[in-house]
């Protein structure tokens, strides 16, 4: 049984006031997420990420296809006891404090009073909410609301957690906290399904990703499969090199970028040998500060896939 399963999941919205015309927000999405996976749903703005999450939680109804969570239809109320959801830019009740909100949601989840009393402070500690937990939510900043949103998503110790742009509005400390939290969930066997357009975050925590563009799935798979982890070149940083030495190196380099006075980043193609550059530099009394292999990043892959999708659409048009 998959943790999350969709088949030809499609959503059309009707646009316009008088003359309604359909707009396809999601087009025949077929995905399967295994239990215990951290799965990243990536895509530019308007690509259908949030629509996918809303369909999985049945906040919107599909035009076609089907969606299942933990082997049950997506709209099944009983399955919601076993899932958690952080919406994008979460907003809660102004008049409640974080503690009261979690207590309210805990009641809805059927968590007993003693369990609520034990879990709520622990969760708020975990998401880094200190004395602010006693403030009315109307006084909370965007980052604080995001932390409250994370806490409510984890209140029932869910088996599957849906996070829509979980890093949004967080400072670097908060982002690291979310990354650790996601990895912690994975370690205890939970499935994490999160949408993001911050690719470095996805790269840091995901085992598998899917890329959406224009409502369509353009790529999906294990990060190790999607990305060419072979070396595509070298970056050599040299210091103390004179102009003549740099000009000699430039002939074999793909790019030479000055960093500071007599300090350069030399980008070599994979076919070039960095030891030749090292020898050249040593000969003129310069030093090599670092040599790093250049690999394809998720961002490179993402940009290629999205650009390809745009090209295809233009050709079709």
């Amino acid at each position: 049984m998959h943790a999350i399963d969709t088949e030809d999941l499609t959503k059309d919205y009707a646009l316009g006031f008088w003359r309604k015309r359909p707009y396809r927000a999601l087009d025949r999405l077929t995905l399967a997420v295994e239990p215990g996976e951290v799965f990243g749903l990536l895509g530019p703005n308007g690509s259908g990420k949030t629509t996918t999450l809303k369909l999985l939680l049945q906040l919107v109804f599909p035009t076609g296809g089907r969606a299942e969570i933990l082997g049950r239809p997506a709209g099944d109320v009983s399955v919601r006891r076993r899932i958690g959801y952080l919406p994008e830019n979460p907003y809660f009740y102004d008049h409640l404090t974080a503690v009261e909100l979690l207590d309210y949601f805990g009641r809805l989840l059927g968590i007993g009073a003693a369990d609520r009393a034990a879990r709520i402070p622990r969760l708020l500690d975990q998401v880094g909410l200190g004395a602010e937990r006693r403030l009315a939510l109307r006084r909370c900043s965007k980052g604080m609301l995001q932390r409250v949103g994370l806490a409510q998503a984890l209140l029932n110790e869910p088996e599957v957690v849906f996070l829509d742009e979980p890093m949004s509005g967080l400072d670097p400390i908060g982002r690291r906290m979310v990354r650790e939290l996601i990895l912690g969930l994975r370690d205890r066997g939970a499935t994490v399904f999160f949408s993001s357009h911050i690719l470095s975050d996805a790269e840091a925590v995901c085992s598998r990703v899917a890329i959406l563009a224009g409502g369509r799935l353009v790529a999906s798979g294990l990060l190790t499969d999607l990305l060419a982890f072979g070396i595509k070149g070298w970056e050599v940083v040299v210091e103390g090199a004179d102009t003549a030495a740099i000009e000699r190196v430039r002939a074999m380099a793909a790019r030479v970028t000055p960093i500071a006075e007599r300090r350069y980043a030399v980008e070599l193609p994979s076919t070039a040998r960095p030891d030749v550059v090292m020898a050249e530099m040593t000969a003129v009394g310069a030093s090599v500060v670092s040599i790093n292999p250049l690999r394809d990043t998720l961002e490179d892959y993402f940009m290629r896939q999205v650009a390809e999708h745009v090209r295809e659409r233009q050709v079709r048009a």
Partner: peptide
């Protein structure tokens, strides 16, 4: 309007 319904309906509430 405030989208609080998103978190609410993700709970086991009909």
């Amino acid at each position: 309007e405030r989208h609080s319904v998103y978190s609410l309906l993700a709970k086991p509430v009909r």
